[in-house]
Protein backbone atom coordinates (compact mmCIF):
# COMPACT_ATOMS: atom_id res chain seq x y z
CA UNK A 1 0.00 0.00 0.00
CA UNK A 2 1.26 3.41 -0.90
CA UNK A 3 0.49 5.93 1.76
CA UNK A 4 -0.16 9.43 0.49
CA UNK A 5 2.81 11.54 1.29
CA UNK A 6 1.58 15.01 2.21
CA UNK A 7 4.94 16.43 1.25
CA UNK A 8 4.44 15.46 -2.37
CA UNK A 9 0.68 15.71 -2.46
CA UNK A 10 0.95 19.40 -1.80
CA UNK A 11 4.03 20.67 -3.57
CA UNK A 12 4.33 24.30 -2.69
CA UNK A 13 6.63 26.56 -4.58
CA UNK A 14 6.81 30.13 -5.80
CA UNK A 15 5.61 31.42 -9.16
CA UNK A 16 9.23 32.09 -10.18
CA UNK A 17 10.28 28.60 -9.11
CA UNK A 18 7.41 27.09 -11.03
CA UNK A 19 8.50 28.89 -14.20
CA UNK A 20 12.06 27.74 -13.63
CA UNK A 21 10.90 24.18 -13.10
CA UNK A 22 8.98 24.32 -16.38
CA UNK A 23 12.02 25.61 -18.24
CA UNK A 24 14.26 22.94 -16.72
CA UNK A 25 11.80 20.17 -17.54
CA UNK A 26 11.51 21.38 -21.13
CA UNK A 27 15.27 21.68 -21.53
CA UNK A 28 15.83 18.20 -20.18
CA UNK A 29 13.26 16.75 -22.53
CA UNK A 30 14.16 18.65 -25.68
CA UNK A 31 17.66 19.79 -26.65
CA UNK A 32 16.09 22.32 -29.04
CA UNK A 33 14.84 24.42 -26.13
CA UNK A 34 17.21 27.32 -25.42
CA UNK A 35 16.87 30.33 -23.16
CA UNK A 36 17.84 33.78 -24.34
CA UNK A 37 17.72 37.12 -22.65
CA UNK A 38 19.60 39.87 -20.91
CA UNK A 39 21.44 38.82 -17.76
CA UNK A 40 19.73 35.45 -17.52
CA UNK A 41 23.04 33.61 -17.09
CA UNK A 42 25.18 33.92 -14.00
CA UNK A 43 23.14 36.88 -12.82
CA UNK A 44 20.08 34.62 -12.85
CA UNK A 45 17.72 37.09 -14.52
CA UNK A 46 16.55 40.47 -13.28
CA UNK A 47 13.89 38.69 -11.20
CA UNK A 48 15.96 35.59 -10.48
CA UNK A 49 13.68 33.41 -12.58
CA UNK A 50 16.41 31.58 -14.51
CA UNK A 51 18.63 31.65 -11.39
CA UNK A 52 20.93 28.60 -11.55
CA UNK A 53 19.84 27.18 -14.88
CA UNK A 54 23.12 28.23 -16.48
CA UNK A 55 24.92 25.92 -14.10
CA UNK A 56 22.68 23.03 -15.07
CA UNK A 57 22.52 23.60 -18.81
CA UNK A 58 25.57 25.70 -19.65
CA UNK A 59 25.93 28.99 -21.50
CA UNK A 60 25.13 27.47 -24.90
CA UNK A 61 21.56 26.86 -23.77
CA UNK A 62 21.17 29.70 -21.31
CA UNK A 63 22.40 32.52 -23.51
CA UNK A 64 23.00 36.00 -22.23
CA UNK A 65 22.16 38.37 -25.05
CA UNK A 66 23.56 41.85 -25.48
CA UNK A 67 21.17 44.67 -24.60
CA UNK A 68 19.63 44.37 -28.04
CA UNK A 69 15.93 43.66 -27.68
CA UNK A 70 15.11 44.03 -31.37
CA UNK A 71 18.03 41.90 -32.44
CA UNK A 72 17.60 39.42 -29.63
CA UNK A 73 13.91 38.89 -30.31
CA UNK A 74 14.68 38.60 -34.02
CA UNK A 75 17.39 36.02 -33.42
CA UNK A 76 14.87 34.05 -31.38
CA UNK A 77 12.38 34.30 -34.25
CA UNK A 78 14.96 33.14 -36.78
CA UNK A 79 16.05 30.30 -34.54
CA UNK A 80 12.45 29.22 -34.02
CA UNK A 81 11.94 29.26 -37.77
CA UNK A 82 14.82 26.84 -38.23
CA UNK A 83 14.50 24.20 -35.55
CA UNK A 84 15.18 25.64 -32.11
CA UNK A 85 12.54 26.40 -29.49
CA UNK A 86 13.80 29.59 -27.90
CA UNK A 87 12.36 31.13 -24.76
CA UNK A 88 13.29 34.79 -24.93
CA UNK A 89 13.04 36.76 -21.69
CA UNK A 90 12.46 40.48 -21.92
CA UNK A 91 13.90 41.97 -18.77
CA UNK A 92 10.74 44.07 -18.44
CA UNK A 93 7.70 43.83 -20.68
CA UNK A 94 8.17 47.55 -21.36
CA UNK A 95 11.29 46.67 -23.35
CA UNK A 96 9.25 44.60 -25.77
CA UNK A 97 8.42 47.92 -27.43
CA UNK A 98 12.00 47.96 -28.72
CA UNK A 99 11.27 44.64 -30.40
CA UNK A 100 7.78 45.33 -31.75
CA UNK A 101 9.03 44.94 -35.32
CA UNK A 102 10.18 41.37 -34.79
CA UNK A 103 7.21 40.37 -32.64
CA UNK A 104 4.43 41.95 -34.65
CA UNK A 105 5.74 42.16 -38.21
CA UNK A 106 7.73 38.95 -38.22
CA UNK A 107 6.87 36.37 -35.54
CA UNK A 108 3.12 36.90 -35.65
CA UNK A 109 2.79 37.09 -39.42
CA UNK A 110 5.36 34.71 -40.87
CA UNK A 111 3.11 31.66 -40.90
CA UNK A 112 0.30 33.56 -42.59
CA UNK A 113 2.46 35.53 -45.04
CA UNK A 114 4.12 32.31 -46.05
CA UNK A 115 0.80 30.56 -46.55
CA UNK A 116 1.17 28.16 -43.65
CA UNK A 117 4.57 26.94 -44.84
CA UNK A 118 6.52 28.27 -41.85
CA UNK A 119 6.24 27.90 -38.09
CA UNK A 120 7.68 30.21 -35.45
CA UNK A 121 7.47 28.31 -32.15
CA UNK A 122 9.05 31.05 -30.04
CA UNK A 123 8.04 31.89 -26.48
CA UNK A 124 8.48 35.41 -25.15
CA UNK A 125 8.44 35.85 -21.37
CA UNK A 126 7.57 39.35 -20.18
CA UNK A 127 7.75 40.42 -16.52
CA UNK A 128 5.13 43.12 -16.23
CA UNK A 129 2.87 45.14 -13.99
CA UNK A 130 3.12 47.87 -11.37
CA UNK A 131 3.64 47.89 -7.64
CA UNK A 132 7.42 47.82 -7.44
CA UNK A 133 8.10 51.55 -7.51
CA UNK A 134 9.86 51.21 -10.83
CA UNK A 135 7.79 54.01 -12.40
CA UNK A 136 6.51 54.64 -15.88
CA UNK A 137 8.95 52.73 -18.09
CA UNK A 138 9.25 49.59 -15.98
CA UNK A 139 5.70 49.01 -14.72
CA UNK A 140 3.36 48.85 -17.65
CA UNK A 141 0.78 46.22 -18.50
CA UNK A 142 0.75 46.17 -22.28
CA UNK A 143 -0.65 42.69 -22.87
CA UNK A 144 -3.72 44.07 -24.63
CA UNK A 145 -1.48 45.58 -27.33
CA UNK A 146 -0.63 42.07 -28.40
CA UNK A 147 -4.22 40.93 -28.11
CA UNK A 148 -4.73 43.03 -31.23
CA UNK A 149 -2.27 41.00 -33.28
CA UNK A 150 -3.51 37.92 -35.16
CA UNK A 151 -0.93 35.16 -35.06
CA UNK A 152 0.10 35.68 -31.43
CA UNK A 153 -1.11 33.91 -28.33
CA UNK A 154 -1.08 36.02 -25.18
CA UNK A 155 -1.16 34.42 -21.74
CA UNK A 156 -1.30 35.78 -18.19
CA UNK A 157 -0.77 33.17 -15.47
CA UNK A 158 -2.09 34.11 -12.04
CA UNK A 159 -0.80 31.14 -10.02
CA UNK A 160 2.41 29.10 -9.80
CA UNK A 161 0.53 26.09 -11.12
CA UNK A 162 -0.60 27.97 -14.22
CA UNK A 163 2.78 29.67 -14.65
CA UNK A 164 4.39 26.25 -15.07
CA UNK A 165 1.58 24.68 -17.09
CA UNK A 166 1.29 27.66 -19.43
CA UNK A 167 5.00 27.81 -20.16
CA UNK A 168 4.99 24.10 -21.01
CA UNK A 169 1.87 24.58 -23.13
CA UNK A 170 3.51 27.53 -24.88
CA UNK A 171 6.52 25.40 -25.71
CA UNK A 172 4.28 22.69 -27.09
CA UNK A 173 2.47 25.23 -29.27
CA UNK A 174 3.73 25.58 -32.85
CA UNK A 175 3.08 29.32 -32.91
CA UNK A 176 4.52 32.34 -31.07
CA UNK A 177 3.29 32.74 -27.51
CA UNK A 178 3.78 35.71 -25.20
CA UNK A 179 3.54 35.09 -21.47
CA UNK A 180 3.06 38.13 -19.25
CA UNK A 181 4.31 37.31 -15.76
CA UNK A 182 3.40 39.70 -12.98
CA UNK A 183 6.45 40.86 -11.05
CA UNK A 184 4.52 40.95 -7.76
CA UNK A 185 3.50 37.33 -8.26
CA UNK A 186 7.04 35.94 -8.62
CA UNK A 187 7.31 35.34 -4.88
CA UNK A 188 3.75 34.18 -4.29
CA UNK A 189 3.53 30.50 -3.44
CA UNK A 190 1.08 27.79 -4.32
CA UNK A 191 0.62 24.16 -5.17
CA UNK A 192 2.45 23.06 -8.28
CA UNK A 193 1.99 19.51 -9.59
CA UNK A 194 5.12 17.56 -10.29
CA UNK A 195 6.18 16.57 -13.77
CA UNK A 196 5.03 17.79 -17.14
CA UNK A 197 1.46 19.04 -17.60
CA UNK A 198 -0.05 21.57 -19.97
CA UNK A 199 -2.46 24.32 -19.00
CA UNK A 200 -4.77 24.61 -21.99
CA UNK A 201 -4.25 27.81 -23.97
CA UNK A 202 -7.42 29.82 -24.48
CA UNK A 203 -9.33 28.34 -21.57
CA UNK A 204 -10.45 30.60 -18.74
CA UNK A 205 -11.02 29.22 -15.27
CA UNK A 206 -13.82 29.99 -12.83
CA UNK A 207 -11.82 30.55 -9.65
CA UNK A 208 -14.88 31.28 -7.53
CA UNK A 209 -18.49 30.53 -8.33
CA UNK A 210 -21.21 33.05 -7.64
CA UNK A 211 -24.71 33.94 -8.73
CA UNK A 212 -25.02 37.73 -8.84
CA UNK A 213 -22.02 39.17 -10.62
CA UNK A 214 -19.30 38.00 -12.97
CA UNK A 215 -15.85 39.48 -12.41
CA UNK A 216 -13.41 38.73 -15.23
CA UNK A 217 -9.81 39.39 -14.24
CA UNK A 218 -6.32 38.37 -15.23
CA UNK A 219 -2.96 37.94 -13.58
CA UNK A 220 -2.66 39.62 -10.17
CA UNK A 221 -6.15 41.11 -10.53
CA UNK A 222 -7.56 37.62 -10.05
CA UNK A 223 -6.28 37.62 -6.48
CA UNK A 224 -7.59 41.11 -5.81
CA UNK A 225 -10.97 40.19 -7.28
CA UNK A 226 -11.16 37.05 -5.14
CA UNK A 227 -10.40 39.08 -2.04
CA UNK A 228 -13.00 41.68 -3.00
CA UNK A 229 -15.52 38.90 -3.61
CA UNK A 230 -15.04 37.71 -0.04
CA UNK A 231 -15.79 41.17 1.35
CA UNK A 232 -18.95 41.31 -0.72
CA UNK A 233 -20.37 38.14 0.78
CA UNK A 234 -21.38 39.99 3.94
CA UNK A 235 -23.32 42.43 1.77
CA UNK A 236 -25.26 39.66 0.12
CA UNK A 237 -23.43 39.87 -3.21
CA UNK A 238 -22.30 36.56 -4.61
CA UNK A 239 -19.54 37.24 -7.13
CA UNK A 240 -18.20 34.73 -9.62
CA UNK A 241 -14.53 35.32 -10.44
CA UNK A 242 -13.18 34.18 -13.77
CA UNK A 243 -9.43 33.98 -14.27
CA UNK A 244 -9.06 34.98 -17.91
CA UNK A 245 -5.65 33.27 -18.22
CA UNK A 246 -5.49 33.87 -21.97
CA UNK A 247 -6.11 37.20 -23.66
CA UNK A 248 -5.64 35.75 -27.12
CA UNK A 249 -7.40 33.49 -27.81
CA UNK A 250 -10.10 34.60 -25.40
CA UNK A 251 -12.48 32.08 -23.87
CA UNK A 252 -15.85 33.38 -25.06
CA UNK A 253 -17.84 30.42 -23.83
CA UNK A 254 -16.83 30.59 -20.17
CA UNK A 255 -17.42 34.34 -19.95
CA UNK A 256 -20.77 34.28 -21.76
CA UNK A 257 -22.06 31.33 -19.75
CA UNK A 258 -21.24 33.14 -16.52
CA UNK A 259 -22.87 36.40 -17.63
CA UNK A 260 -26.00 34.53 -18.70
CA UNK A 261 -26.13 33.19 -15.18
CA UNK A 262 -25.33 36.33 -13.17
CA UNK A 263 -26.65 39.12 -15.42
CA UNK A 264 -23.83 41.46 -14.34
CA UNK A 265 -20.30 41.90 -15.64
CA UNK A 266 -17.24 43.71 -14.34
CA UNK A 267 -13.85 43.40 -16.03
CA UNK A 268 -10.77 44.13 -13.93
CA UNK A 269 -7.36 44.56 -15.51
CA UNK A 270 -4.13 46.40 -14.89
CA UNK A 271 -3.64 47.87 -18.35
CA UNK A 272 -4.89 51.39 -19.05
CA UNK A 273 -8.67 51.25 -19.03
CA UNK A 274 -9.24 52.71 -22.49
CA UNK A 275 -9.02 50.36 -25.49
CA UNK A 276 -8.08 47.45 -23.30
CA UNK A 277 -9.06 43.95 -22.34
CA UNK A 278 -12.20 45.33 -20.74
CA UNK A 279 -13.37 46.87 -23.99
CA UNK A 280 -12.92 43.57 -25.78
CA UNK A 281 -14.80 41.53 -23.20
CA UNK A 282 -17.58 44.11 -22.87
CA UNK A 283 -18.07 44.10 -26.61
CA UNK A 284 -17.99 40.33 -26.66
CA UNK A 285 -20.92 40.22 -24.25
CA UNK A 286 -22.79 43.07 -25.91
CA UNK A 287 -22.55 41.32 -29.27
CA UNK A 288 -23.70 37.95 -27.99
CA UNK A 289 -26.97 36.49 -26.82
CA UNK A 290 -25.69 37.02 -23.27
CA UNK A 291 -26.64 40.68 -23.79
CA UNK A 292 -30.25 39.76 -23.15
CA UNK A 293 -29.27 38.53 -19.71
CA UNK A 294 -27.53 41.73 -18.60
CA UNK A 295 -29.35 43.32 -15.70
CA UNK A 296 -26.96 46.22 -15.17
CA UNK A 297 -24.49 48.19 -17.31
CA UNK A 298 -21.09 46.57 -17.82
CA UNK A 299 -18.29 48.03 -15.71
CA UNK A 300 -14.60 48.19 -16.59
CA UNK A 301 -11.94 48.77 -13.97
CA UNK A 302 -8.54 49.46 -15.45
CA UNK A 303 -5.52 51.66 -14.84
CA UNK A 304 -5.82 55.44 -14.62
CA UNK A 305 -5.34 57.42 -17.80
CA UNK A 306 -1.75 58.26 -16.91
CA UNK A 307 1.68 56.66 -17.00
CA UNK A 308 2.37 54.51 -13.93
CA UNK A 309 3.49 57.00 -11.24
CA UNK A 310 6.42 56.67 -8.88
CA UNK A 311 4.98 57.85 -5.54
CA UNK A 312 3.71 54.69 -3.80
CA UNK A 313 0.29 56.13 -2.97
CA UNK A 314 -0.14 57.39 -6.50
CA UNK A 315 1.05 54.09 -7.88
CA UNK A 316 -1.47 52.22 -5.76
CA UNK A 317 -4.26 54.58 -6.76
CA UNK A 318 -3.44 54.21 -10.46
CA UNK A 319 -4.54 50.58 -10.75
CA UNK A 320 -7.50 48.59 -9.37
CA UNK A 321 -7.13 47.44 -5.78
CA UNK A 322 -9.30 45.24 -3.57
CA UNK A 323 -11.31 48.18 -2.24
CA UNK A 324 -11.92 49.73 -5.65
CA UNK A 325 -13.02 46.36 -7.03
CA UNK A 326 -15.50 45.93 -4.16
CA UNK A 327 -16.75 49.48 -4.68
CA UNK A 328 -17.22 48.74 -8.37
CA UNK A 329 -19.31 45.72 -7.54
CA UNK A 330 -21.49 47.78 -5.20
CA UNK A 331 -22.07 50.28 -7.95
CA UNK A 332 -23.59 47.52 -10.05
CA UNK A 333 -26.01 46.80 -7.23
CA UNK A 334 -26.24 50.44 -6.21
CA UNK A 335 -25.28 49.61 -2.70
CA UNK A 336 -22.40 51.97 -2.26
CA UNK A 337 -21.21 52.43 1.29
Amino acid sequence: MNAINPETALRTMSYAEAIREAMALAMEADPAVVLMGEDIGVYGGAFQVTLDLIERFGPDRVMDTPISELGGAGVAVGAALTGLKPIYEFQFSDFAMLAMEQIVNQAAKLRYMLGGEAAVPVVFRLPSGSGTGAAAQHSQSIEAWFGHVPGLKVLQPSTPEDAKGMLLAALADPDPVMIFEHKLLYKTRGHVPAGRYLTPIGKALVRRTGTDLTIVAGSIMVHRALEAAETLVAEGISAEVIDLRSIRPIDHATILASVRKTGRLMVVYEGVKAFGVGAEISALVAESDAFDYLDAPILRLGAADAPVPYNPDLERAAVPQVDTIAAGARRLFRREV
Binding site: G263, F291, D292, Y293, L294, D295
Partner: peptide, 15 residues
Protein backbone atom coordinates in the same frame (compact mmCIF):
# COMPACT_ATOMS: atom_id res chain seq x y z
CA UNK B 1 -31.97 63.25 -20.23
CA UNK B 2 -35.17 61.46 -21.18
CA UNK B 3 -34.52 59.40 -24.29
CA UNK B 4 -37.86 59.98 -25.93
CA UNK B 5 -40.62 57.73 -24.71
CA UNK B 6 -38.49 54.62 -24.42
CA UNK B 7 -38.57 53.18 -20.96
CA UNK B 8 -35.20 52.73 -19.28
CA UNK B 9 -34.68 49.01 -18.81
CA UNK B 10 -31.88 46.49 -18.72
CA UNK B 11 -31.52 43.94 -21.51
CA UNK B 12 -32.56 41.19 -19.10
CA UNK B 13 -35.70 43.10 -18.14
CA UNK B 14 -36.53 43.69 -21.79
CA UNK B 15 -36.09 40.02 -22.59
Amino acid sequence: DDAGSKPRATPAARA
